[in-house]
Design a binder for these strands. Sequence first.
DNA 1: GATGAATGAGATTTCATTCAT
DNA 2: TATGAATGAAATCTCATTCAT
Lengths: 190, 190, 190, 190
Amino acid sequence: MKLKDDKKVIQIFQSALKLVAKKGLSGVTMGDISREAGIATGTLYVYFKSKDELINALFAACRENSVKVSFKGYNPQAPFKPGFRNIWLNILRYKLQNFEETVFLEQCYHSPFITVDTREKAQQLSAPFYELMERGKKEQLIKNADTGLLLTFMIGTMNELVKQTHYGSITLNRTKINVTFDLCWDALKS
Amino acid sequence: MKLKDDKKVIQIFQSALKLVAKKGLSGVTMGDISREAGIATGTLYVYFKSKDELINALFAACRENSVKVSFKGYNPQAPFKPGFRNIWLNILRYKLQNFEETVFLEQCYHSPFITVDTREKAQQLSAPFYELMERGKKEQLIKNADTGLLLTFMIGTMNELVKQTHYGSITLNRTKINVTFDLCWDALKS
Amino acid sequence: MKLKDDKKVIQIFQSALKLVAKKGLSGVTMGDISREAGIATGTLYVYFKSKDELINALFAACRENSVKVSFKGYNPQAPFKPGFRNIWLNILRYKLQNFEETVFLEQCYHSPFITVDTREKAQQLSAPFYELMERGKKEQLIKNADTGLLLTFMIGTMNELVKQTHYGSITLNRTKINVTFDLCWDALKS
Amino acid sequence: MKLKDDKKVIQIFQSALKLVAKKGLSGVTMGDISREAGIATGTLYVYFKSKDELINALFAACRENSVKVSFKGYNPQAPFKPGFRNIWLNILRYKLQNFEETVFLEQCYHSPFITVDTREKAQQLSAPFYELMERGKKEQLIKNADTGLLLTFMIGTMNELVKQTHYGSITLNRTKINVTFDLCWDALKS
DNA sequence: GATGAATGAGATTTCATTCAT
DNA sequence: TATGAATGAAATCTCATTCAT
């Protein structure tokens, strides 16, 4: 008896990501995805009962993955700034190396595919980031401003940075990354 | 694009923007646009010879408009920081009040609709922003870092801020706007 | 400006009927119908927003038509038996000449296409038949049994008769029709 | 059709009947049937090599069963009318209690599933009914009309009766059944 | 034999575009 | 120019059937 294959889901996700990054969420068809994944179109429907569901599942997976990666190596007992820097670098590295996911998440933001439910679950995943920023504020290293605002600042700059990098108007190197972190830290530090 | 009836073009543009913000670039059809604009589908093709052309024209119009608005009231002879602040506020106000355009521009980024030509023309419109930043660097008010990097910082924050505001996780008021500008300025100032 | 064409609806209906009689409700596709009607498949969707809706509309039209034809030439003031006979013959003639509709109505009976709403509306169209039978009972020409039961007798025979005729195990002629009417009348008369 | 497991064939048949009665012959899939029968889709193909074959086998089984049941308790040596009445009641009871089979047979009539071969074999099973009616005619109890016509009358009324009963416009009880038999007998008796 | 994942042909439906009015 | 019906290619999705386990 053949069993549903977890690898296949990953294949499908990767194909979808690749295509969305290349052609945008519009213009990616189920046929494209199956062709890219090397399976029959009908097989997609064994794993996801509609295009909608596929996109939502992928969205959820990307969000989860991105949060998990961000906190890799983070130790809440260690001093704040190096820990913060580590997370900052994790995020940047993640966004650069998984550019397709970054694009996909952004494209989903205003798409009719993502349901309210999926959106809410994604929001809940942000909790650790809020906690991080609160800790910085408590230790008086970070400005005492609205936490959401501070996070927005931190994330927004990265998104734009990654986008510009990818499209060639900026080329990143170790130095520039350091400069960028300093810009960010200067903004947030109290 | 025949300029027989300017009002109709504006109607079409606004309908398209409204729908893209609501449903994403994918899932907006020519039928939707014409219905929203209160005209017949065939009439769309009197003004634009294809969906591609419509989207590209709208993209160009939005970009142009956004730059024009940004520099309203800017006087290169006046002191830098207030001028910079004015522009920063112009951009933020524009993005907040014209959220649909912001979404549209973002959605277009990875879409197959936007041609290389359109993309390049859009890039050229960024020149005044580069000049602004260069002036700040020359006056030693702004850090001596890569100009693209600095601009990225300025713009990225705003995009994220507007998005979060619109989706309700942040509610902006005068104070918060000031705080955000200060974050930005602290990042950029030398 | 092209206007929606009533003739086209009739064309579509006739094509659908022809195909259902030939191939059964299962196995008739929208593609078949459009091909038979000599129009593009997409055009079907200009007139009916789904296959479901097309089938329901056709069902309603057939039912309505069949009732209308049945009472042609019926005069409630004239004596009962000839009037009854006239209606009986109308129905039989209709079913024979419009065999496709007969088949279609029968096939629809248990199909998932027909909605409760359509079914109820169809039921209401039976009122004149009930009135006819009630009149016969009041004039003491018809047995004083349950009206529904009596009608069932009148209609049931015809359905089976038409089916058998069409499939060749019975060949009808004037005499046989008279005999069948007599069978029916003998059953119902008091 | 391998007879490895008779119970499974019965399960499959019953599932198919149930579903056809609920959703019509169109719209019943092999997947539906297997799910209802509690077996895997692939297993269906162990017992029947195609959907066609399954439907044809079920059709044949239903026809055969219905004839067998009809003549239960019939003794050609006993007087005609009670014997005829017995058969009439057998048929009615069968159709009422096995409504799903009745529906299925009706739906098959115009379907592309039933082959000419199956259809002919079914026709041959009607022979005992012809003989019954011939006997009645010979004994001068039944009208001397075309036998097919007489049978058609008898069967057609029952079909309609059962349908109306099932869909609620008639509720049968012992009295009404007696009345109905009398209607039928009045029609056929010479 | 039993399973259910995999297949791909084909069904339904959508939609950019054309065209007759 | 304006209309919206008509088109047909292409998208989504279904389903009878096969196949690996």
